[in-house]
Design a protein around this nucleic acid. Structure first.
Length: 465
RNA sequence: GGGAUCGAAGCUGAGCUGGUGCUAGCGGCCGAUUGUUAAUCGGACGGUGGUUGGUUCAAUUCCAACCGAUCCCGCCA
């Protein structure tokens, strides 16, 4: 039974105790005093553990002096107070067993030096052995756990909405097709079209772009629900903020309006980022030192600051009276561009802000129409330095209003029959929002490219590994 | 989808406007040295310059196509 390095460094293995640790070599340094220093990493925390291997070991010449970066080792020994600087404790090895050698050290890609993120993406199978990807991985896990914990503690149920959907009605972007038909020679109907009736589901099927419509059904039974799972967009987006496959969090609350939704978003973000600062001090210190010196300050400020609320109409007024030169001209009815969002968060509010009540024509059909007839109860939570981090709305719960919007947008009511049923049987005001998980990680860590915060990024022309 | 840029040893990157054998740092290797900290010092090794074609007496350097990558904008999370 081996001991986690995180536990050793946290003092859970007292000085004098005998332990076994297992991990991978980061560096080896030899001393002519007759010993070698092995920096061993097992992923359990940011720091490696120093193992001191004396030349008296039976396999010192044969094995220890041949150890290179990346070798897998199992070491047993006594936890001792370190004689050197840089660590409180280390392990004085009784045995060092090389479990797996690196058979070509000259070409092993992971060197004890800084690598560019672009290069690391080309070795995605080995990059978790680096400081930055390891830290990102632990942050990702911690945030995921905090998200589930927040919802669980607040009485939400986690709903596993489907990945495959046959309702071509989600309308949030280009979708990937799911089919078992022979793409080169599909079955045809008499008029020459592809006969989807012969496909696996008997109709066209695609990968989901959002679990919202499905989760709403459970909301109107379980009251407080959320989804947390993979989401797919077949958009040809070539930016550092987009993925074709990403993870999304979508809570939905019943008997709730937009104000309750905005409050939920604020409480939620503060909870998960506070948990991150509490639980991953080592990794966040690394990000602050080497990736984004402002990341901890940014999170700390967000946690402490009351989010502003601002009406879309007021936001437009603020933008119009500013002296800033915007690439995209500002007028009531436009969607806010990145430059506009940045101005609002950085110059007008100097903090996070929930912009609410957008023009209905730039928002989705299911958002609840306001009494003014022009706007809907939609919100975007904007954060300094990143822009929109959360988008949400109160949903239209009135069947006749919903049907009118479906018609106005050229959609077909019959495609939404089960969604409309929710408005026929015990309808209730409800609201929810969506958070891109990877966007949240970027915001928290300052990592620039979204492809570096997901283990195996999927993007246009990128599906290696 | 629109636009821009880049592609040299395992990695990072000098080499301005084309001229014999293409630099260097780091890594790996060898040696020295030290309770060392991505150590330090010395040495040797390591490159058909993304691919294909073109211009030229001559191309890493100019041009074209292709392949790969990055960034910005749009779409959005």
């Amino acid at each position: 039974m081996s001991t986690r390095i995180a536990d050793v460094l946290a003092g859970k293995a007292p000085v004098g105790s005998k332990i076994t640790i297992e991990g991978w070599i980061r560096t080896r340094r030899d001393s002519k005093a007759g010993l070698s220093f092995l920096a061993v990493h097992d992923g359990s925390c940011f720091d490696p553990l120093q193992v001191v291997a004396p030349q008296e070991l039976a396999n010192y010449q044969a094995d220890v002096l041949r150890i290179t970066t990346g070798c897998a080792v199992r070491c047993t020994g006594e936890v001792v107070a370190s004689q050197g600087k840089g660590q409180a404790v280390e392990v004085r090895a009784d045995t060092v067993e090389v479990v797996g050698w690196v058979d070509d050290p000259d070409h092993y890609p992971m060197q004890p030096k800084r690598h560019t993120p672009e290069f690391l993406r080309e070795v995605a199978h080995l990059r978790p052995r680096t400081n930055i990807i390891g830290a990102t991985t632990r942050v990702r896990h911690t945030l995921a756990q905090a998200i589930h914990r927040f919802f669980h503690e607040h009485g939400f149920f986690w709903i596993h909405t489907p990945i495959i959907t046959a309702s071509d009605a989600e309308g949030a972007g280009q979708m990937f097709r799911v089919s078992t038909l022979d793409a080169a020679n599909p079955p045809r109907t008499p008029d020459g079209k592809v006969d989807w009736d012969k496909d696996f589901f008997g109709k066209e099927a695609r990968l989901t772009v959002s679990g919202q419509l499905n989760v709403e059904t459970y909301c109107l039974a379980m009251s407080k629900v959320y989804t947390f799972g993979p989401t797919f967009r077949a958009e040809n987006s070539n930016t550092r903020r987009h993925l074709a496959e990403f993870w999304m969090i979508e809570p939905e609350i019943a008997f709730a309006d937009l104000a309750a939704d905005a409050q939920l978003a604020e409480d939620f973000l503060k909870y998960i980022f506070r948990a991150l600062l509490d639980e991953r001090k080592d990794d966040m210190a690394f990000f602050e030192k080497f990736v984004d010196k402002d990341c901890i300050a940014r999170l700390s400020k967000m946690i402490e600051t009351k989010f502003a609320r601002m009406d879309y109409t007021d936001a437009i007024t603020e933008l119009q009276k500013s002296k800033e030169k915007f690439e995209f001209p500002v007028s009531w009815g436009i969607d806010l561009q990145s430059e506009h969002e940045k101005y609002l968060t950085d110059k007008v509010i100097n903090g996070p802000v929930a912009v609410i009540n957008y023009p209905k024509d730039i928002k989705a059909f299911y958002m609840r129409q306001n009494d003014d007839g022009k706007t809907v109860a939609a919100m975007d939570v904007l954060a300094p330095g990143i822009g929109e981090i959360i988008g949400g709305s109160q949903r239209e719960e009135r069947l006749e209003v919903l049907d009118r919007r479906i018609g106005e947008m050229g959609l077909h009511a019959q495609d939404y029959w089960w969604y409309r049923d929710l408005r026929r049987y015990g309808t209730v005001p409800h609201a929810g929002f969506g958070l891109g998980f990877e966007r949240a990680i970027i915001y928290a860590t300052g990592v620039e490219n979204i492809r570096d915060v997901i283990p195996f990024p999927r993007a246009p022309r990128q599906a290696e590994f």
